[in-house]
């Protein structure tokens, strides 16, 4: 049974059907890329998995549990981590506080602080800036913080929405390298990425969304070689 499964999902957003009849899955330990043009429904799909919007039809399940009746917080407790587009770190709060908030679902504050220390070890740049206001970090540092924040809850599935957007190439490589490392430690990844080449280089499988509908999907290697994908996304 796949870790994440969407079957026949419709999502309406502000009166518009943003996603229609979408079925996809992410297996244990996989990296799966979700590709598509702007407005294809990628972020909306992630929002529905996280419970921020509700599908009007279809079923979403994580680890076999139907997510329909669960609050976003309950979905986090169930093992979904979501690093939203634009990083959305908590400005005005320190780096350390941002990380601690990633562990809000844990009641034990000491355990949270242990995990914060572990993430700081993984991402030393955050350790250096622990006491700094998160809003003063560079874009790349904010991205690392947003990922670190999501890791504190030890998600089984990590969803990343455009994690390299706006980053310098070197920083983008660092971020994608981190994603790979996280995956190797056993976390499944659903990766929404504008840079299709990099995403398909990292992922085992990929799905292409176009205007809310599922288009091509399959092996990352096959998609990379597909002429239609090359024309549309790899240029």
């Amino acid at each position: 049974m796949p870790l994440l499964e969407l079957s026949g999902v419709d999502i309406s957003y502000g009166g518009v059907r943003a996603v229609r009849d979408l079925s996809l899955h992410v297996g244990d330990g996989e990296i799966v890329a979700l590709l598509g043009a702007n407005g294809a429904g990628k972020s909306t799909t992630l929002a529905a998995i996280s419970g921020l919007v509700r599908p009007s039809a279809g079923r979403i399940s994580l680890g076999g549990t139907d997510l329909a009746a669960l609050s976003p917080a309950a979905i986090v407790r169930l093992g979904a981590g979501h690093v939203p587009e634009g990083r959305r770190v908590f400005g005005g709060l320190t780096v350390r506080e941002n990380l601690q908030l990633g562990g809000y679902v844990l009641a034990d504050e000491r355990e949270v602080n242990r995990r914060v220390a572990a993430v700081c070890e993984l991402l030393p740049v955050l350790a250096e800036r622990r006491a700094q206001n998160a809003a003063t970090l560079s874009g790349g540092e904010q991205q690392l913080l947003a990922i670190g924040r999501a890791l504190i809850a030890r998600p089984r599935l990590l969803m990343l929405d455009e994690p390299t957007m706006g980053l310098a190439p070197r920083m983008a490589r660092t971020v994608l390298g981190l994603v790979k490392e996280i995956n190797q430690q056993g976390t499944s990844v659903l990766l929404v990425e504008q840079n299709a080449r990099a995403a398909l280089g990292l992922a085992q499988r990929g799905y292409v969304l176009s205007r809310g509908r599922l288009g091509l999907h399959g092996d990352a290697a096959g998609l990379r070689a597909d002429r239609r994908v090359i024309e549309a996304y790899l240029g």
Partner: peptide
């Protein structure tokens, strides 16, 4: 912890939801 959650919601309610805070 409770105060931190309050400040997080004030800063970004959507990200607060995604961090598992019962907003």
């Amino acid at each position: 912890r409770a105060g931190r959650a309050m400040r997080a919601i004030a800063a970004d309610p959507k990200a607060a939801h995604l961090s598992g805070i019962e907003v």
